[in-house]
């Protein structure tokens, strides 16, 4: 399974989201790779991804995708990530 985390420049905020998404996946006992990307790279990165995690501000920049787009409000709240990933991944 592949999860893409996206921010404007592909580092910094997306790296924080990647770290905490991996912690949430650990807690859910789900194996997935988490790739950080930027707005310019999201279409290529998400081509084979199930889920894109990002900020509400960036949803429109994603464009058309088959992946589920999940908006994360608090990037430091692993509970929020766990709850939203659980719904999206249907476990």
């Amino acid at each position: 399974m592949k999860i893409v985390v996206m921010c404007g420049v592909g580092l910094g905020t997306s790296a924080i989201l990647k770290v905490n998404a991996e912690r949430a996946l650990d807690r859910l006992d789900i194996e997935a790779s988490v790739q950080a990307t930027d707005v310019a790279g999201v279409r290529a990165a998400a081509a084979d991804a199930q889920v894109i995690l990002t900020s509400s501000e960036l949803v429109d920049a994603i464009g058309k995708t088959n992946a589920d787009v999940i908006v994360i409000n608090n990037y430091f709240d692993v509970d929020e990530l766990v709850a939203k990933l659980e719904i999206a991944l249907g476990s």
Binding site: V39, E57, L58, A61
Partner: peptide, 13 residues
Amino acid sequence: VIREFGAYIVIAP
């Protein structure tokens, strides 16, 4: 970065 992509850098309350 903020002018281009918005306030997404506000990553927590």
